[in-house]
Design a protein around this nucleic acid. Structure first.
Length: 476
RNA sequence: CGGGAUGUAGCGCAGCCCGGUUAGCGCGCUUCGUUCGGGACGAAGAGGCCGGAGGUUCAAAUCCUCUCAUCCCGACCA
């Protein structure tokens, strides 16, 4: 294995795959398009999952688990839904050595199986709302895959809720996209634009789709989470009705929302540099790594007793730390290794420090390295981690702002997309206009941001007056 | 499914055009010694049906045919 990774400036996507592999996040599996999530990458995913899970529960949701195999006929119940997924299904045709009477689809998403159950569970308005989430794996036979960003099998979370009114279901969809925004910004240190998808870009079977869009290090957009207001589409397809308070039979209103292991990719491409990952303290598997340095047994015992004092104190303040005890690699190797893995803070503790009661502290995000007393490190480490978290967010936010350009005409769009970045523009075009633009520029309308300033301008494509502004960019 | 490329040690590659000793190199791995505050060094080792099948030839990693697989670029997508 060679040292370092391909520089971002040389080949961004090579940089990305290098980092994923050298930081030991994931590896290729024997099956095309699938990946093995290695322990360090999985620890990152677990932190993402645990945080989100707590947020879902705090907003009144519960977890359940639905099976992975779905009768093929279920997928055909909702016409648009089927159309959306048909080409990317993996289908099981044999079981127990025999041809199955009805093929089973490996879930590409669980709407259909969940709604078939909701039919049994929902009879009255008293059964509503039903607020269920599941953590699961899904399979989509994509043509082109990339580690974490698009793999054949991926891990995700899918919330499926049923409500007695349109208003409540719409509110749920809004609430959950805001949960995702909060998570992206406060935990991933990744600023996002929250908005509505155009008709062309929305989820098959949804009435409206909302998404959070983030700018990656190469200035392309990554859709990082989605939430859908599904109206009564699935209720009608699966005949899920309830009796309301006026004794009338009504179809239920639905929402669904999800994020996936793609978020790990978002994390990598939001913050990483040519030395590897840079992880935000709120999600880093290790927030502090300690590298003890010594020459002999006597040195070791002196250094280790000093290190133990530090780690006990870190444990008390609930800092996630790791002491790198490997004695088969040199300290210099360890420094590079942990930088590749993006650990926010590194402590170097050697005989020199033991003598003076100091530690050498290095920050991953800005490269700062300084010596300070052990005690002042311990009393400030929690605050330091918090300020790194905030600085990382601010850095990404100003990066995005610097690379978001207001455009007035089509030529300007081509220029922005050619250079890389987000284009913000008044828009009043049609779905066909949108397709045309995508064909010609490779850029798509990422979303219609919720935040609109209400001013009127001319659509950059049609010239018509409109108050609606959109974000356009090349997307992953 | 269209376009391009590649399969040789765990990983990355050279060798192939122009067939010919025992198939090399770097990293990694093993053992020993010296090292250890920014990817240590030396010595000695281990590790290969050259993707698979068929053919041409006295002789094939090398030439021919078929096949399988993977990667990159396009249309689809969290």
């Amino acid at each position: 294995m060679s040292k370092g990774v391909t520089p971002q400036s040389k080949d961004y996507s090579k940089w990305y795959t290098d980092v994923v592999q050298k930081a030991e996040l994931a590896d290729y599996s024997p099956v095309k398009g699938c990946m093995v999530i290695r322990p360090y990458g999985y620890a990152l995913w677990e932190n993402i999952r645990n945080t989100l899970d707590a947020m879902f529960k705090a907003t009144g949701h519960v977890n359940a688990y639905f099976p992975m195999l779905i009768p093929e006929s279920f997928l055909k119940r909702e016409a648009e839904h089927v159309e959306g997924f048909a080409p990317e299904l993996a289908v099981v045709t044999h079981g127990g050595g025999k041809l199955l009477e009805e093929p089973l689809v490996i879930r590409p998403t669980s709407e259909t199986i969940i709604w078939s159950m909701y039919k049994k569970w929902i009879n009255s308005y008293r059964d509503l709302p039903l607020l269920i989430n599941q953590w699961a794996n899904v399979v989509r036979w994509e043509m082109r895959t990339r580690l974490f960003l698009r793999t054949t099998e991926f891990l995700w979370q899918e919330g499926h809720t049923a409500h007695a009114s349109e208003k409540e279901a719409r509110e749920e969809a809004y609430k959950m996209i805001d949960v995702y925004r909060e998570f992206a910004e406060s935990y991933m240190a990744m600023p996002v634009i929250v908005g509505k998808k155009t008709e062309n870009e929305k989820f098959a079977g949804a009435v409206e789709t909302y998404s959070i869009e983030a700018m990656m290090g190469d200035m392309r957009a990554l859709q990082s989470g989605t939430s859908h207001y599904l109206g009564q589409n699935f209720a009608k397809a699966f005949d899920v009705t309830f009796q309301n308070e006026n004794n009338e039979l009504e179809y239920v209103y639905a929402s669904s929302w999800g994020v996936s292991t793609r978020l790990v990719g978002a994390l990598i491409m939001s913050h990483g540099d040519d030395k590897g990952l840079i992880l935000p303290p709120h999600l880093a598997p290790y927030q502090v790594v300690i590298v003890p340095i010594y020459r002999d047994a006597a040195g070791r015992s002196a250094v280790m007793s000093f290190v133990n004092q530090i780690s006990e104190s870190l444990a008390k303040s609930a800092v996630r730390y790791h002491v790198d005890l490997r004695d088969t690699v040199s300290p210099g190797f360890k420094f590079n290794d942990w930088e590749m893995k993006g650990v926010p803070l590194r402590l170097e503790v050697g005989p020199r420090d033991v003598e003076t009661g100091n530690v050498v502290l290095a920050r991953r995000d800005n490269g700062e390295k300084k010596s300070l007393s052990k005690d002042s490190f311990l009393s400030t480490v929690t605050a330091l981690l918090e300020s790194i978290q905030k600085e990382m967010f601010q850095k990404r936010k100003s990066f995005r702002e610097q690379n978001t350009i207001d455009i007035r005409d089509y030529e300007a769009l081509k220029e922005v997309i050619g250079k890389g970045g987000f284009a913000r523009a008044y828009w009043d075009g049609s779905g066909d206009d949108e397709k045309q633009i995508q064909e010609e520029t490779k850029a798509s309308i990422r979303c219609i941001p919720f935040e609109q300033d209400g001013t009127e301008g001319e659509c950059f494509y049609t010239g018509r007056k409109t108050k609606k502004r959109v974000i356009l960019a090349k997307a992953y």
